[in-house]
Amino acid sequence: MKIAFDGKRFFNNSSGLGNYSRDLVRIMATYFPDNQYFILNNKKSERAKEIVELENVSFLETSKGKLSRQFKMGKDAQNADCDIFHGLSGELPLKWNEKPIKKIVTIHDLIFLRYPEYYSFFDRKIHFWKFKKATAQADLIISISEQTKADIIKFLKVPESKIRVVYQGCHHSFKETQSQDFLNSVQEKYKLPEKFILNVGTIEERKNLLNIVKAIQNTEIPLVVVGKKKEKYFKKVERFITKNKMRNQVFFLENVSMEELAAIYKLAEFFVYPSVFEGFGIPVIEALFSGTAVITSNMSSLPEAGGNDSLYINPNNFEDLKSKISFLWNNESERKRRVEKGLIYAQKFSDENIANELMKVYKETISIS
C-alpha cells in the first residue's frame, strides 16, 4: 500500500499538529514497514530528519506554483500512484485528476465553533469552509476523540457512519526511562524548585492558567509552566502574579526539548490541566506515560484522555481546583496509587495500538467501492 501525507504540519509545526503528524508517520512506518509512505510538501526541513530517512518513508516535493498545496499536492500523490491521501490537519487538496485515490482527513477539534469568542470572524469562516469541504471529499474521517466525533456530527452534519475514532499517542520521549543524573541536570539547568506542580500548554485563555495561579495563592506550592505565551492573556496572568507577590512561586519556561519536557513531567509532584475545552489533550497522555498523577477538567474529551484515576475538576471553579491541588499535594500515597493506575490506562494510547487502529481505517478505506 502507498500512503501519501500532507506534510505541511509535519515539517513546519514544532508542537500540536506537527507532533501528531510526525508520530503518526513514525509509528506506521515502524509497525507496518511493508507499506510505502510519502510526505508531500513544497520543501523539506531538518525537522524529523530521522523519520524522513527511514527506508519506507520518502519526501515528495510538490509541484511548483501558487497555492500548490491546494491545487497540486493531491495530483502529485495520484501521479506517484498512491492508494490513499491522508490529510493530517483538517484539510484536503482542492484539485485532483482522474487517477483513483482514496481520501482520509483527520479532524482534531471544532473549538472554533464551540468557542467562537477565541477566534476572529475571518478565521472562523475559513476554518469552517476548509473542514466542511474536506469532510465532504473524504471517503472516511478520523476523529481523535469521541468528543470531536460528536462535534463533527453536530456542527458539520456528517453521518456517524463516515467517522472512525483513532486516539492520539505522544512522543516516545515520555515513554522512556531517564537516568537520575539527567533528571538532576534538567532540574539544575532550569533552576526548578525541589517540589512543584506542572502545567504544560500554550498560555491562552482557553487553557485556563489563571485559575491555577489563583488556586495556589496563599500557599507555598510552586508552579512550573511550560508553553508559548499568547501576549494578551499572559499579561493578564502576569498582572495577577505581580499584584499578589507570587513571582517567586510561578516559573515560566519556553523552548524546552522533548527529552527535557519528559524529565520535567517526571520531576513534578503532579500535573494540572484545567483547560475549558480540548479536542483530546495530549499533555494529559504525556503525564500518564511519564508516571505523573493528573488533575484535569471534567469537560470535553479530557476524561477520555485521563481515565478513571485522574482527578477531575470544574475548570471554571478555582475553589474546586484549589481543594484538589491541596489534596494531592498532601497525599503522597494517593499520588502513587493514581500514577500506577494511570500507567496501565495509558497503554490504550501505545504506538502499537494506534498503528493497528490506523491500519484498520486504511484497509477499510481501500475496500470502499
Rank of each mutant, 00 (worst) to 15 (best):
A4S: 05
F5R: 00
R9A: 14
N12S: 14
N13R: 06
G18M: 10
A29I: 01
Y31L: 00
F32C: 03
N35P: 03
Q36H: 12
N41A: 12
E46M: 11
E46R: 05
A48C: 08
E55S: 12
S58P: 10
S63Y: 11
R69Q: 14
G74Q: 02
K75G: 00
D76S: 00
Q78P: 03
C82L: 04
H86A: 06
L88F: 07
S89N: 13
I104R: 01
R114W: 01
P116M: 10
I126V: 14
H127V: 00
H127S: 13
W129Q: 07
A136E: 15
L140Y: 13
S143K: 00
E146D: 14
T148L: 06
I152N: 05
K154G: 01
F155T: 00
L156H: 11
E160K: 15
R164M: 12
C170V: 13
F174Q: 04
T177I: 12
T177S: 13
D181Y: 08
D181G: 01
N184A: 13
E205P: 04
K207C: 02
N211W: 09
A215L: 10
Q217C: 09
L223C: 03
V226K: 04
K232T: 12
K232Q: 10
Y233F: 13
V237P: 02
E238Q: 13
E238T: 04
I241P: 03
I241L: 09
K243H: 13
K245W: 13
R247Q: 15
Q249H: 03
Q249Y: 09
F252E: 12
S257G: 05
A262W: 04
F277Y: 08
E278H: 02
E278A: 06
G281E: 03
P283T: 06
T292C: 11
S301K: 00
A305P: 12
L311D: 07
N314I: 14
N316L: 15
E319C: 08
D320G: 08
L321W: 07
L321S: 04
S323H: 15
F327R: 01
N330S: 15
S333D: 12
K336G: 00
V339G: 04
G342K: 00
G342C: 09
I344P: 04
K348I: 13
S350R: 05
I354N: 04
K360W: 08
E364Q: 12
E364M: 09
I366G: 00
